[in-house]
Every structure is written in C-alpha cells, then in structure tokens.
Write a protein that binds this DNA or RNA. Structure first.
Lengths: 173, 173
DNA sequence: AATGAAATCGACCAGCA
DNA sequence: TGCTGGTCGATTTCATT
C-alpha cells in the first residue's frame, strides 16, 4: 500500500483517451481504437481490463432509446418528505424502485428529492405520481413537464480542464 | 408501409427480455443470453441487429463510474432565462455543452431549465455556475447539493405494466 | 506494461420453415 | 420474416519479455 488515493485510480492521458472512445462507442473494433491511440490491440485490451478491474469502467451496456419504447413523456418531480428522519436512503430506494423512475437525487434545501421519470402518457404520469405519494414518508410533490432534453452521458469527455489535471496529477505526486 | 406507428417499433416479449439483458450487461457472451432466452446464438444476433437497425438500441457504451474520476459532487441547478424567447433550444445546447453538465431538462413552469452536473470540488462547482450564468439568455440560477443519488438507467426493465402492454399490443392491432 | 500465438467468441452468409 | 448451422474474422486469454 502506498500513498495513492483509493477513490481515484491512477490514470494517464492514454487511459482518458481510451475511456472517451469506449464511452462514446464500445461497438468499434479494438483495431480502430488501437490505431487512433497509437497502441497495439493487445495493449488496448490490457488497459481496458485494468480499467474494469479498478472499477473505472463499471460495465458495458446497450443504450436503449426511450422514445422507441413510446416513453415520450419526461417529468421532473420535486418530492418533500414528512420530517427529516434518518430514512432518506430508504425513501430514495423506494422511489427509484418505482417503475418509470429513472433518477432520484436527494438534495439539501427545501426540496428533499428531485425525481426524473419517463412514461408514455399523462395517464401513466398521474399513476406514477400516485405511487410516489404512496411511498412511506412522502408528504408533498410538485411535477414539471419536460419539453426538451439535452444529455451528455459521457463522463470522461465531459471533464473541466481542472478536473482533468486533478486526475492526471494526483495530489501526492 | 402499413398502419403501424413509426415511433414505436413492433416488439415482442422476447425482444423485451433481450433488451433487459443487454441493457443490464452487454459483456456476457451471446451464448449465455441465448440460453436464458431459449434461442440460438444466431437468433439472438439477428434480433440484436434488427433492434439496432430500428433505432431501439442506440449503441453500446462503457459505463464509467464518475466517482472513479473523482467526480464526487453532484448538483441540481434551476436555471431561469431572461424572457421566453424562442431560443430555448439554443440555450439548452449551450448548457449541455458546458464541461461538467450531464443532463439538461427544459421544463414548463416557473423554472425554465433543470441542470444536473458533476464536478470534483466546490471550487469547480462555483466555476461551473459562473459558466452557466455566462450563457447568453440565462438570468438567474439556484443550486442544490446532491447528498445521495439513486439511479435506474435501464429503460426496458423500468416499464410499468401499462407501458409494457402498450408496447406488446399496439393500438392498431 | 506490453507482446505474439493459441483458443474462444461474435459477425456474417446462404439456405430453410 | 424469423431462424438454423457453418465459416471466417475478431477478440480474449496466457505464457513470455
């Protein structure tokens, strides 16, 4: 054990470039990635394995278009809980377990939870809000329709220069 | 061309089961998936190709853990714009283009945009909020720290029974 | 940490129900 | 259209440096 941080794995610029590639598209051949990075196929594979072993890459998944499944309605719902007990984690887990709920953020401030959900219709949204209110501890909700949505799901290509530097040059260097 | 909807591709239960599998983990072998679904490898491959051709599967990507990159701070920022011009799309695109911004929701109501972002430190969050305010048309912001987060990124395994039925039994049947 | 060879797996094709 | 079985190419693994 040395003095390096546990949370942040030691990454170099090649790792970051590799992450940007596979986070954007893991369906390309290793050869294509290897060419772009100036590495051999085996080297790319070796680094990918290391990144997965370190927990940097959590997994590889298919991205499903919600619209293709008819989920055309997105809502942002503010959820207030009855009193600040220590049950925030249980409530958060109950909320995310509801069908249709995609993200749950437990926040500081007057709103306790921000819930993002996807459904097909207004009927389904009404039903979902009913199920949110039925969660033990939930007091009040306020929902907003989402008219338009913009996403940048990639993490590694979305870093500020400061964040990049912090990753490439750990504090204990 | 028949009377089927454009938006919602015709999917059967096998397709949904397949989507649940690959949305949870695309790193397993085709044989494993085939066994669980009671299909042959070729059939699985055939359906995957079709789902991708239909736009149901948008792509295959690596999931990177933000914490592994030191992005331990999540914030939800409400953004009010100066006046309801027709530039909401331009503003949304400007917001999501900012480094650190992950989701942007353009909403109906008193708040115009809900922005979810990830950074490493309070310094970086201050900087990000400055950059949000600097976006043309942005008037006022209010940020909340996220203390805890719960996600269900999978779309196909997150459907209400009503939504499942609507997918399996199109209206024009 | 990276390489090259051997085993394994996935992509594609022609044909069939 | 949905699927089968086989072939070829790509990927994963491992011994080696």
């Amino acid at each position: 054990m040395n003095g390096s941080q546990d949370a942040t794995a030691a990454l170099d610029e090649t790792d970051l470039a590799l992450l940007e590639q596979v986070e954007a598209d893991f369906d390309v051949s290793l050869e294509t990635i290897a060419d772009e990075l100036g590495l051999s196929k085996s080297a790319v594979h070796y680094r990918l394995n290391k990144l997965e072993a370190n927990g940097v890459i959590r997994g590889v998944t298919a991205d499903v278009d919600p619209l293709a499944l008819g989920l055309e309605l997105t809502a942002v719902t503010d959820v207030m809980v009855t009193h600040e007990t220590g049950y925030s984690e249980a409530i958060g887990e109950s909320l995310v377990a509801l069908d249709g709920v995609e993200h749950v953020y437990y926040t500081m401030g007057d709103v306790d939870f921000v819930v993002v959900s996807r459904v097909q219709s207004r009927d389904q949204l009404n039903d979902l809000i009913d199920r949110i209110v039925a969660v033990e501890g939930v007091n009040e909700t306020a929902s907003k329709f989402v008219l338009d949505e913009f996403d940048d799901h990639a993490v590694s290509s979305n870093l500020t220069p400061a964040a990049r530097n912090a990753i490439l040059e750990p504090a204990d260097r």
